[in-house]
């Protein structure tokens, strides 16, 4: 039991990552509102960012700036740099998604998936 708690506590950043990821995925799957879907997708992506950032962190390490002092422990900068790129990609995805939601709203008058599906059913099937 104690081991289990220690294991959970020791990897708490990963647990956070898992919880956030599941929350995000759940929202994407369960919500019919397109904006909420995008929000869920953002939460999901944020969990990935956290995963990378926590991965590169070294306990007690400083920021990876070369100060010239010998023996200083610093965090791994590479994952942080990578995630900057991923954040940019995430923003772009959100932007495209929102733009699509706007166009959907314009042409269907709704951003609720159920309503849109109903309209599809009444239109001639492709």
């Amino acid at each position: 039991m104690a081991d289990l708690i220690r294991s959970i506590a020791g990897h708490y950043n990963y647990w956070m990552f898992v919880i956030l990821m599941m929350t995000g995925l759940f929202i994407v799957v369960s919500r019919g509102n397109l904006i909420k879907k995008i929000a869920g997708l953002n939460i999901f992506q944020t969990s990935v960012f956290l995963f990378y950032i926590s991965m590169g962190k070294v306990t007690g390490g400083t920021a990876p700036v070369n100060t010239g002092r010998a023996g200083e422990v610093y965090s791994n900068p590479l994952p942080h740099v990578l995630i900057l790129t991923a954040i940019v990609v995430g923003i772009a995805t959100t932007a495209v998604g929102l733009a699509l939601a706007v166009r959907i709203k314009e042409s269907y008058g709704s951003i609720e998936e159920d309503v849109i599906e109903d309209m599809h059913r009444t239109e001639r099937p492709a």
Partner: peptide, 30 residues
């Protein structure tokens, strides 16, 4: 207009796929 909804669904699925992929890369890096 159904193209909009198709693109939106594609975006959601594609982004989930890409995120899974990038998580996998994170594990590889670890």
């Amino acid at each position: 207009r159904r193209a909009f909804k198709a693109a939106f669904d594609y975006l959601i699925m594609g982004t989930i796929g890409a995120s899974f992929f990038v998580i996998g890369i994170g594990f590889l890096y670890m």
